[in-house]
Design a protein around this nucleic acid. Structure first.
Length: 453
RNA sequence: GUGGUUGUAGUUCAGUUGGUUAGAACGCCUGAUUGUGGUUCAGGAGGUCGCCGGUUCGAAUCCGGUCUUCCACCCCA
């Protein structure tokens, strides 16, 4: 009985070609994280649901993949539980879930290891996360996040360094046209205050849609959430702000400076810009955007989002400062700031822009072919020598027609094929075929090694 | 979670108001005098038409369900 195999919705295989491109992205991100003093961390795929739930809001909780208890998972349930619906039944049949992001597991780790950690603690983490979302282009149910966070300091140097890291990663990946949108939660809070509404979250959510649905629709939504039209007029000029980052900050100070939150927010941003200047970072793609809100409710300070211009993909990176992430796990007063790259989206962006170079492929450089079984040992000797010199090489393992081996090399884009037979053994040479030009000649192993180096 | 959309050979797609044996291109395999790939030529293999059920003398085609794909909303990387 055979059946057609299939993949769960929203998951993907990554073939060799895709993987070498993905690894190119991973390696460069890792390189930059390490250069800035971040240390690697990995946490389990599964966390206890008590750790995960309540951290992402109601919507988020629903998107957590629950793991059914092992064994007889109905043992702890009763008929009443079943009749009361899934919400009541769920905690009795599942106590673990797949991780939804890397930040909450990190917070959990910090709390559990608080006595062994020296602060400020910088870690990076590159692992898959899972969301039971409905998949779309650039949205999957299993995807990787590349997080870097530093906790235990409120220094704005961290914010400035995040900008520097993003710049460096994008430089390495060859992405040139992008902008790092930056805003501050306190500025948003001051704006909400000025607009005079009760529901701050509704304010952020509506504001975040500005570039998508326009100012009028945003105001409409806010009015329906209980904001007074007359008050909204006061924040109108803030949404249409043009000019340099310095000019925008000036404007904020003038309009929101009388509010404590506005004061705090603009001070932070001003200080961050000053630091960037002191780092000699001038052309850093930073763009103040007071409409940037970001969904995650735990951000309290600066927030970032990176958008690559002129591509159809959403944001490829984002992050921000949170004052009390570990508070829910009983450790107060640990301020942190972090950000994350979305590899899957970066991949799509680079593919769309054609930024992957042939060089990124890690394929075989030399294929050895022997004309008969007796020539094989000679091939092994050559193979050893090539590998000892760090050249990626392989020998065609079975006795086939030359045609087939050349075809194989062609498909795998292997640039050189060594043809080995009685003649070559007798003269102690290699018949080297250049697959690009088709030319071939006889040379010694030493000559070939120096050609390849 | 709400609304819509898609599914036919390895891949991209045709397939008439329901009617015999479901097609094409590309790819794949074999061969064109035995140590020479990409081009050409000749031949060949490959499909329970996503899955389950219903209507019908008869279903790739119509209907229902289910899974999958993509899109919008919600939210998000």
């Amino acid at each position: 009985m055979s059946q057609k195999p299939s993949l769960p919705k929203g998951t993907r295989d990554f073939g060799p070609e895709t993987m070498s491109k993905r690894n190119f992205i991973f390696e460069n991100i890792k390189k930059v994280f390490q250069k800035f003093g971040y240390m690697p961390l990995e946490t389990p795929s599964m966390e206890n649901l008590s750790v995960l739930t309540g951290k992402y809001g109601d919507e988020g909780d629903q998107l957590i993949f629950k793991v059914l208890n092992s064994g007889d998972y109905l043992k702890k349930t009763s008929v009443e539980d079943y009749q009361n619906g899934s919400k009541q039944l769920m905690p009795k049949i599942a106590e673990k879930g797949l991780r939804y992001d890397l930040t909450v597991p990190f917070a959990r780790y910090v709390v559990m290891n608080q006595h062994n950690i020296t602060f400020p603690f910088k870690r990076y983490q590159i692992q898959p996360v899972w969301r039971a979302d409905r998949p779309q282009r650039g949205r999957y149910r299993e995807f990787y996040q590349c997080d870097a966070d530093v906790v235990g300091t409120d220094s704005l140097i961290c914010e400035a360094e995040i900008v520097l890291m993003i710049n460096e990663v994008f430089e390495l990946l060859g992405i040139q046209d992008y902008s790092i949108k930056i805003n501050h939660r306190q500025i948003l809070a001051a704006m909400a205050q000025l607009a005079g509404g009760e529901n701050e979250t509704a304010f952020y959510v509506a504001l975040d849609k500005l570039d998508k649905i326009g100012a009028d629709a945003v105001f409409e939504e806010l009015i329906s959430k209980g904001y007074a039209a007359s008050n909204l007029e006061k924040i109108k000029p803030l949404l249409k702000l043009e000019g340099s980052n310095e000019e925008k900050i000036e404007f904020i100070i003038n309009t929101l400076g009388h509010l404590e939150a506005g004061q705090n927010g603009s001070n932070d941003l001003q200080e961050t810009f000053k630091l960037l200047q002191q780092f000699d970072s001038v052309n850093n793609h930073v763009d103040l955007d007071f409409t940037l809100a970001r969904g995650l409710s735990y951000y309290t300070g600066a927030i970032f989002e990176v958008k690559v211009n002129h591509v159809s993909i959403g944001s490829v990176s984002g992050g921000g400062r949170y004052d009390n992430l570990t508070g829910v796990f009983g450790l107060d007063g640990v301020s942190g700031v972090g950000f994350s790259f979305g590899v899957d989206r970066l991949y799509d962006v680079m593919e769309e822009l054609g930024l992957f170079k042939e060089k990124a492929m890690h394929s075989t450089e030399v294929l050895l072919y022997s004309f008969d079984q007796e020539s094989m040992p000679y091939g092994f000797k050559v193979l050893n020598a090539l590998r000892a010199n760090g050249i990626k090489s392989e020998i065609y393992p079975t006795q086939v027609k030359l045609k087939k081996a050349l075809n194989f090399a062609d498909k795998k884009k292997i640039p050189f094929v060594l043809l080995l037979g009685p003649d070559e053994i007798k003269n102690n040479t290699l018949c080297v075929k250049d697959m690009n030009s088709g030319a071939q000649n006889n040379q010694t192993l030493e000559d070939f090694l120096s050609l390849m180096s």
